[in-house]
Simulated assay, not measured.
Amino acid sequence: MCITLNSKNKFGFVDGSIAQPAETNPMAGALFRCNNMVLSWLLNAMAKDIVDSLLYLDSARAVWVDFHDRFQQTNTPRIFQLKQMMNSSMQGALNVNSYYTRMKMLWDELKTCQPTPVCCCGGMKAWNDYMEQEFVMLFLMGLKDSYTSIRSQILMMETPPSISKVFSLVIQEERHWVVRNAIGTETFNGAMESANVALTQGGRRRPTCTHCGLLGHIVVQCYKLHGYPPGYWSKSKGTSSPSATTKAQQCGSSLKPVGLQSSSSPHVSSTVAPTCSTSVPSATSSSAASVMALTTD
């Protein structure tokens, strides 16, 4: 309110520097209008239950004095509260800018409640530097553990920096952390994207069999579960299907010797004839007799 009144050049109506003029004063009308305007500003800025007790006061100065006497309090409880809040303030989930703003608001209010004496000899400079270092220590104590390195660097400086310099160093450290985390996130996303590309074909994700764990088919199409088709040839290993291999083994195991030995013909020896039921028929008694006749002739 004081800032608003000063900007309008009307603060003299509440601090008493502009006295109420006499009715014979030619400027009395203009001053009364200005007084009523300031009075309306004050009443509009107050709560309704407070305004009801001030309606019968006719000057802005009287309203200001009544309001000041009614709500004026000593600064000691507020100073205790401010110092307690500053000592217990922690950064937590706030960023550095928000944390600094909150601490700066508390510190400025504390300086207002404890005004520094005015000195023209320069002796108060040491006191002001000491108070600023107190603020720096409170600010550093509330930072998160991730700022331990920059906090150690600030504390080891020979010349204690100002609070503005400390804030600049800490905010640079925060930006460094943000950039490093962003690079790590991009690297992780790139690795995940590469893995997804390896699992995709034609823009779609390839299915995975729940039986054998291979890509490209589902369980109802799994050869290992339902059997290989005839003539299946594995491209990866260059081997035929288990069914074709088994059939060939069965045919090979069915080969047996057919003895056609004659005591009168020494040139006739035992031969081996395939007897696989699928391709080579077995020798009968008539065919054996025909072969015997030809050999005896």
Rank of each mutant, 00 (worst) to 15 (best):
A45H: 11
A45P: 09
A45G: 14
A45R: 07
A47S: 08
A47Y: 00
K48T: 10
K48W: 10
D49F: 03
D49M: 07
D49V: 11
I50R: 06
I50L: 06
I50K: 01
I50G: 03
I50A: 01
V51W: 02
V51G: 02
V51P: 04
D52W: 15
D52G: 14
S53V: 06
S53T: 08
S53P: 00
S53E: 08
L54E: 06
L54W: 07
L54G: 04
L54Q: 08
L55E: 11
Y56V: 04
Y56L: 12
Y56C: 11
L57Y: 06
L57K: 15
L57M: 15
D58C: 04
S59V: 01
S59M: 07
A60E: 03
A60L: 01
A60G: 09
A60H: 00
A60Q: 03
R61V: 02
R61M: 03
A62P: 01
A62N: 07
A62Y: 01
A62V: 05
V63N: 00
V63M: 09
V63T: 07
W64N: 00
W64G: 00
V65E: 06
V65G: 04
V65Y: 09
D66M: 06
D66G: 05
D66K: 13
F67W: 04
F67E: 07
F67H: 08
F67R: 08
H68F: 14
H68N: 15
D69A: 09
D69T: 13
D69Q: 06
D69E: 10
D69R: 07
R70W: 12
R70L: 10
R70D: 08
R70S: 12
F71S: 02
F71L: 05
F71G: 01
Q72T: 04
Q72N: 14
Q72I: 10
Q73R: 13
Q73S: 11
Q73Y: 09
Q73I: 14
T74D: 15
T74E: 13
T76I: 02
T76A: 14
P77A: 07
P77R: 07
P77Y: 01
R78M: 01
R78C: 02
R78N: 09
I79V: 13
I79Q: 10
F80P: 00
F80H: 11
F80G: 05
F80L: 11
F80Y: 11
F80M: 07
F80E: 04
Q81G: 06
Q81W: 06
L82P: 01
L82S: 05
L82D: 00
L82R: 03
L82V: 12
L82K: 03
K83W: 00
K83D: 12
K83T: 05
K83R: 15
Q84N: 14
M86S: 01
M86Q: 03
N87D: 15
S88E: 11
S88Y: 15
S88H: 14
S89I: 15
M90S: 11
Q91M: 13
Q91D: 01
Q91W: 08
G92P: 10
G92A: 05
G92K: 02
A93D: 10
A93E: 13
L94R: 05
L94H: 03
L94K: 14
